[in-house]
Nucleic acid binder design. Structure first.
Lengths: 204, 204
DNA sequence: GACCATTTTAAATGGTTGTTTAAATTATTC
DNA sequence: GAATAATTTAAACAACCATTTAAAATGGTC
């Protein structure tokens, strides 16, 4: 049975995740991780063999986390409009609880594209989702604008994740403090919801 | 006209820009830059005093480049709808010619927010742009949805820059090769144009 | 061609990197 | 409680880092 004190391996992994997300792979040293985990430097390699191996484990987790919620919502048995609203709300929630997640993924993949598994399992999960079925049905009966899932998803996620990925830039560009930025992000959320629904749904 | 043999200082700066944009500040070594510029390592410090100073010079240039075109279009004497179209086309052009630019800025600012000059000169330039005047006029006479410049700009730029910032992710997620991605990006461009205009312009 | 400032070079600086070692400590098994 | 295995430690490793040095090469001026 697990006791109150965490296993060293987990402590290191969690500490490493925190540091990697903040500083990226290149900006993080083994000593940073050891210090954050309050453990001896050698333990990183004792448990994970190398900084790279530890990183890849964490990167895989982070990527799964990013996609898991999205897939769950795409398959939820609710209407299209509500689904879009949920997707956007979920994105906002994620950006607030894990503000470093997106820029971390984007940047690491940008520097080393091969870190993305080359299998297309997620691709197939997306294509076979309930969301795609709903989209195709709506298009067939004329209630939905002809558009593919590949195009509509970034229209939702892009607008939201973009302002958080470039949070400091937008704070500076629009002269906002932290509170004002959050209010601004809320406004933006409602605009995105309205705009995407407005564009997707055809009324006749 | 340009001399045949470039000045060493410029050669180093251009080489450094290329490497920094690809690998980021942390991922770039002085030796990387020297190798790319085909020059001795000591010259980087001879001309720029330090890697940090060289980086800051380049970063300032890159940031200006990102904002200059946008401001010019915002002040161009053309109609709102055409202006939005031009903004989006310009964004696409930039993402194609300098695909690493946005993720580079985003990531460096994310890691070191103070690298952004704290003055709000750009902020004031945005607020006093012709675009804002046109927006306010349209809102006043009921042809444009009540929305602020801060909200509408990321609705345009976010959708487009997002798919390029996460190009490899989207290529993998949607199972696209390079050609297919460019076709996909073109589709996306048209969707964004239509969606934003559709949302912004009120017809009655 | 001697003089001087500028530019370029190879080599070295001290510090940090990821990783390893071998000894010390703790936990587990009988 | 001795023997064995698992964990943790301090120290060291070679490789690489940004930067500096001092000498060499270059170019222009008189």
């Amino acid at each position: 049975m697990r006791c109150v004190t965490e296993k060293s391996e987990d402590k290191i992994k969690e500490a490493a995740r925190r540091v990697f997300l903040k500083k990226g792979f290149d900006g993080t040293t083994s000593r940073d991780i050891a210090r954050e985990a309050d453990m001896n430097i050698a333990l990183t390699n004792y448990y994970f063999r190398s900084k790279e191996k530890l990183f890849l484990e964490i990167f895989k987790d982070v990527l799964d986390e990013y996609i898991k919620d999205m897939l769950e919502i795409l398959n939820r048995p609710i209407g299209l409009k509500e689904k879009i609203s949920e997707m956007i709300e979920n994105d906002f929630r994620m950006m607030k609880t894990e503000p470093d997640l997106i820029i971390f993924i984007m940047n690491e993949v940008h520097k080393e594209p091969d870190r993305l598994f080359s299998d297309n399992s997620i691709c197939r999960l997306l294509e076979s989702s309930l969301f795609v079925k709903q989209l195709d049905e709506g298009i067939a009966n004329g209630t939905v604008r002809p558009i593919r899932m590949e195009n509509i998803l970034p229209l939702m996620k892009g607008c939201i994740e973009f302002i958080y990925v470039g949070k400091h830039i937008h704070k500076n560009l629009f002269n906002l403090n932290d509170d004002e930025f959050e209010k601004y992000a809320q406004e933006q959320k409602e605009h995105v919801k309205a705009m995407v629904c407005n564009y997707l749904m055809l009324k006749d």
